[in-house]
């Protein structure tokens, strides 16, 4: 294809979509809607993966002693943990530290702890393992140690997040497929109207010897224009929306202090999001054009 012919196709594509303003706008909006659903899905799953990765990199266990254990019994437990070769390091959390942590976590509501002493909290040990693969057996062994009431296991959380994100992905995938198919058909319908409006022109083009593809390309371009416009709008909306959520999140006292979850910054993911949107837009736009041509442009 020659450059000037390409330029002609692109110009005609713009003319087509402009002549058909209202339908073009409707198609752009449906593309925006489906891409935003897709974007939410991508953003949440990227963040879920990010958090799972953090959790997995920190194979941490916390072993809680029985609350009524005295210092000698606690020291005995500590010796056992110290002796374990699979343990990289450990940290003792005293009753006072536990009380302090709880006060921090409660923030304004810390007053409810007034009148209680540190003795209501058990002593615990935060244990880092040499390798994450030991965690299963270490938990089992520690639970058998007299004096240890329970061992919390960050693997549980990892599994929970993994399972949740799988269900979430499934649900989103179904929605995305529905939305994308709807987009394809709405774009196809928009192009059908253009084809209808230009059927006289198309028949003249055929009489003077235009090839099928020469007639088709402007309609393909029209579809791509619609979907790219939709993608740009969807990108702006979802990027701004995400930034607002991240800002809100970082200001939130609970998440900020506990560092239970962390969110990816918009700077680190916008390019990924843009590439996804662009790719989907081109595919959806071209698919819409081809559907319309198979059905309505039997040249």
């Amino acid at each position: 294809m020659k450059i000037r012919t390409l330029r002609y196709f692109i110009k005609e594509g713009f003319v087509n979509s402009y002549r058909n303003k209202l339908m073009s706008l409707a198609s752009v909006l449906i593309v925006v809607a489906s891409l935003i659903v897709f974007g939410v899905f991508v953003l949440i799953s990227l963040n879920a993966q990010h958090n799972i990765r953090i959790w997995k990199e920190q194979p941490q266990l916390q072993a809680f002693c029985y609350q009524e254990l005295d210092d000698i019994q606690v020291r005995r437990v500590e010796e056992i943990i110290k002796a374990d070769e699979r343990v990289l390091s450990y940290e003792k959390v005293t009753r006072e530290q536990a009380l302090e942590k709880m006060r921090e976590r409660l923030g304004k509501d810390a007053a409810i702890l007034d009148g209680y002493g540190a003795d209501i909290f058990p002593v615990s040990f935060i244990i880092r393992l040499k390798d994450v693969s030991y965690s299963g057996e270490v938990v089992k062994d520690l639970e058998k140690v007299t004096g240890i009431e329970k061992v919390t296991y960050s693997q549980d959380t990892v599994e929970l997040i993994t399972r949740m994100s799988q269900w979430f992905s499934l649900g989103c995938s179904v929605m995305i497929v529905i939305f994308l198919v709807a987009s394809v058909f709405i774009i196809a319908n928009t192009i059908k109207l253009t084809v209808f409006a230009r059927r006289k022109e198309i028949s003249i083009m055929k009489y003077i010897g235009a090839t099928d593809w020469f007639i088709r390309w402007p309609f393909v371009v029209e579809g791509v224009i619609i979907s790219i416009t939709g993608a740009i709008l969807a990108f702006i909306i979802s990027a701004c929306g995400y930034k607002a959520v991240v800002d809100k999140f970082s200001q939130d006292a609970f998440f900020a202090q506990t560092s239970l979850l962390s969110m990816l910054s918009i700077e680190s993911i916008w390019s990924k999001l843009a590439v996804y949107y662009a790719a989907i837009a081109v595919v959806v736009g071209a698919a819409g054009s081809f559907v319309s041509m198979r059905r309505y442009l039997k040249v």
Binding site: K200, I204, K206, Y207, I208, G209, A210, T211, F214
Partner: peptide, 20 residues
């Protein structure tokens, strides 16, 4: 696929002009 090339090799004029 060859039809367009046949039509380019001849000129056609119709009763209803068929201009854009």
């Amino acid at each position: 696929q060859e039809i367009p090339y046949l039509r380019r090799s001849l000129g056609v004029v119709f009763q209803d002009f068929r201009l854009l």
